[in-house]
Design a protein around this nucleic acid. Structure first.
Lengths: 106, 106
DNA sequence: ATAATATGTAACCGAATGGATACGCATTAT
DNA sequence: ATAATGCGTATCCATTCGGTTACATATTAT
C-alpha cells in the first residue's frame, strides 16, 4: 500500500518548534544563518536543513550578501494557516459566550 | 545526543492532513468513529490512532454512547495556533499595503 | 447464550524526520 | 597565495510517524 501522499504544506513546516522559533526571530527582521543558528543548541547544519524546508515552502527567502546568506520572512504562505484556523475561532468565542451567559444567569 | 524533546503541541496535531480533515468534519457536529472513518481510504484503526492523538492533545473529546464513541470538537487548544499566527497577519497585510500603494503610485 | 457491531490496542513495517559529523565551495582577510 | 569564514550538502543513525493486520473488549441484537 502506498504511503499517504507527502504533505509538503506549510502545516508541516510549522509543526517543528525550531522552525517556528526561526520564523518568530525573522519577524524582527532578516538575519544571516549564523545569527539564526546561534539561538539554538543544535548544530548549524541542522539549522540549514530547517531553513531549506522553510525555503522550499516559500515561507522564507534567501539573498546572498557576500559570503553570508540573509534570510527574510515571506509570510504569504502562512496565510493558509490563518485561513484554516479562522472558522474555529467561532467555536471558542461561542464557548466563551456560553460561559458568560451561564455565569450571568446563575 | 538526546533527540529534540518531543513536540506534543497542537501544531503537531494539525500537521497531518487526515487529522485536519477530521477536525473540519467535527466542526459540523459530533460524530462516532465509524462515521469519521468512512470519509477516508485508510483503515479504521488508523483513524483510531489519529483520534487518540487528537484526544491526548485535548483537541477533541470522547463520550461513550452505547457501543459507540462520539467525538466532539474541543477547539480551545487550537487557540494556541490562532495566537501564534496572529502577529504574522500584520506582515501580509503590510505586504498587501505595499502592493496597493505601488499600484496606485505608478 | 450466541452472534454481530463498534471500537480500542498490540505488534509489526517501511518511510520520513531531525539530529550529528565530514566535507566542499565561495568569499573575504592576511 | 593562503588561511579563515559562512554556509550548503552528503552520509549516517536513531526515533517517530502513519499505515497495516490480528486480536481483545464492551455493547446490542437475535
Amino acid at each position: 500500500m502506498p504511503q499517504a501522499e507527502q504533505d509538503r504544506s506549510v502545516f508541516r513546516a510549522i509543526a517543528d518548534p525550531t522552525r517556528r522559533a526561526i520564523l518568530d526571530r525573522l519577524r524582527k527582521g532578516p538575519a544571516p544563518v549564523n545569527e539564526l543558528a546561534s539561538a539554538f543548541a543544535q548544530s548549524r547544519p541542522a539549522i540549514s536543513k530547517h531553513l531549506r524546508i522553510l525555503r522550499e515552502l516559500s515561507v522564507v527567502s534567501e539573498r546572498r550578501q557576500g559570503r553570508e546568506r540573509v534570510y527574510r520572512l515571506e509570510p504569504a504562505e502562512l496565510k493558509d494557516v490563518a485561513d484554516w484556523i479562522l472558522p474555529y475561532r467561532d467555536f471558542w468565542q461561542q464557548s466563551l459566550g456560553n460561559l458568560k451567559s451561564y455565569l450571568e444567569n446563575d
